[in-house]
Simulated scan of single mutants.
Amino acid sequence: MALYRIKQFYWGITSRIDFQDENFLKQHLNEKELMLFNRLNEHEKKHCIKTAMDAEKICLKNNTYNKILIKAALLHDIGKIEYSTNLIEKSFMVVLNKLFKEKMKKYKKYKVVDVFYNHPENGYKILKKYNYDERFLYLIKNHHNNDIIGDKELDILKQCDNKN
């Protein structure tokens, strides 16, 4: 697992949005969504694109193309636009969370901690203003909720998010 986290860090520092990524975004997001998406920092954008591309592959493999799931994968971390963590902060939080589980939540007065734990809820609140349907908002709000199992779309989103 540690080696995989190092690989993820490397992906983060080398993240660049390319032509294929731009086309993928234009295919799945409207103009307002693109403006919102572009408020994420570069490594978060690339993470969301990779998450969505993996979700799309799973959908196509299962002959169940799902536009809502792919859009949710692209926008699942939108709650991070209010405070953009850099890769060092993000990596630090991943390690602390692994070592201390959820005990770090009590330090939510620090923005980096708050965003790490509460970006799904923050994303839900941001996107709710745009009148998305409840299913889409549910996916955003619960993409880190490990208490929910057996929801096929949410499970795919969590799997792809964790992989990237």
Rank of each mutant, 00 (worst) to 15 (best):
E44P: 10
L137Q: 09
Y138P: 15
I149G: 13
N66Y: 01
F92Q: 11
N23M: 11
D18C: 02
K105Q: 09
H43R: 11
K125A: 10
L29F: 13
H143C: 00
E44W: 03
E89L: 03
I6L: 06
S15K: 04
N41Y: 03
M104F: 14
N122M: 04
T64L: 09
M1L: 09
D147T: 08
E33P: 02
G79E: 00
P120Q: 07
N131I: 03
L74V: 06
N164W: 09
L29C: 14
A73P: 01
K90D: 12
C59R: 09
Q8E: 11
L157S: 10
L87G: 01
I81T: 14
T14C: 07
K152Q: 15
M93K: 01
G79C: 02
N146K: 10
F92G: 01
K45A: 00
N162T: 13
L36T: 12
I78R: 15
I6E: 03
F136N: 05
D114N: 08
G123S: 09
F136G: 03
Y65C: 12
N146L: 09
S15H: 03
D147L: 08
I126A: 01
F24V: 11
D133H: 03
H119G: 05
G150A: 10
K61Y: 06
K128E: 13
Q159S: 13
L60R: 15
F100E: 05
K111I: 03
V112K: 02
